[in-house]
Design a protein around this nucleic acid. Structure first.
Lengths: 154, 154
DNA sequence: CAGATTTAGTTTCAAATGAAACCTTTTGCC
DNA sequence: GGCAAAAGGTTTCATTTGAAACTAAATCTG
């Protein structure tokens, strides 16, 4: 990893590399899911989590998907309009809604999930399982380090 | 890497992990550079590349920084207004502008570059040099794989 | 060398984003 | 219980983003 005169090389600057790689992958995935299922990334994340974990509240979904509550609210509204999720009032708490996949939503999930995995598999063809394990670990640690540093800056 | 009933686990889905990690890091960096130097990420990338490689055209900067030409145009306008870069007409091609750091821009670069590295160092404190080497390699390969797959989808 | 095409860059427009204000219900706390 | 503070969601607003249309200059092609 060579560094230029002033010490900084954009290409070797990890926040840059990370951003570029993430954008390339995100654009690819976003395009695929929009074209195939009419889902935005926030919407697809909600479907994935509801399919995976079962019904939940928006607040829980925010924590689970690391998305803003505004983003979750809008994705939930859109999915509700498409009858992919139901939003029943939460008996336990009058402020919140209980979200769950409808039958149609479950059918979509059953189709989307394998497709997502197949797409991931194609993207990651050239990576060995240990490499992927390493990648996951590094990404998690990076995320934690960034959050820790952000917290330290208050 | 365990996978749920339907085979999909959001937490183990690499595009998701990548996006979350990149957002965490980007938000951190964006906040730091905005607070300290009043630079957006596109602006700071232009300053970094112009400081690193010397004068250039916008088109070259697009390729170099992987940013959209609209984004580069706007960042260049803003930096021009702050007199951090000069935009002289390009003798060789009447359509394009030659961009370069002004004296003030160079002074800023001389301050920003070490600060960026110091910040990166704090973020990456917990990573060993070989781990960072690995991370860079994996990110580059991911980026290439995503672009290759995108091209294949035309 | 005159038109057709491409390229550098800007502008316009519509969509996505998230911070802040807001409404409603719940939870402390006296 | 009653009132202040907090929490779940939604709405509003300002900002960011990039696709598409546009302008002007350069390059092909015949």
């Amino acid at each position: 990893m060579k560094r230029a005169a002033a010490g900084l090389t954009l290409d070797d600057y990890l926040p840059y590399r990370l951003s570029v790689a993430a954008n390339a992958v995100s654009d690819l995935i976003a395009g695929a899911y929009h074209a195939r299922f009419g889902l935005s990334i926030p919407q697809w994340r909600l479907v994935a989590v509801l399919g995976e974990d079962g019904p939940s509240t928006q607040q829980a979904l925010c924590a689970r998907t690391r998305m803003d509550k505004v983003t979750v609210s809008r994705a939930a509204t859109a999915l509700g309009e498409r009858k992919l999720i139901s939003r029943s009032p939460n008996a336990a708490d009058g402020r919140s809604h209980r979200l769950g996949l409808t039958g149609e939503g479950q059918a979509l999930y059953a189709e989307v999930a394998p497709s997502a995995l197949a797409y991931e598999a194609r993207l990651l063809e050239a990576f060995s399982p240990p490499e992927l394990e390493t990648a996951h670990g590094l990404l998690r640690r990076l995320e934690l380090a960034a959050m820790a540093l952000a917290a330290k800056m208050d």
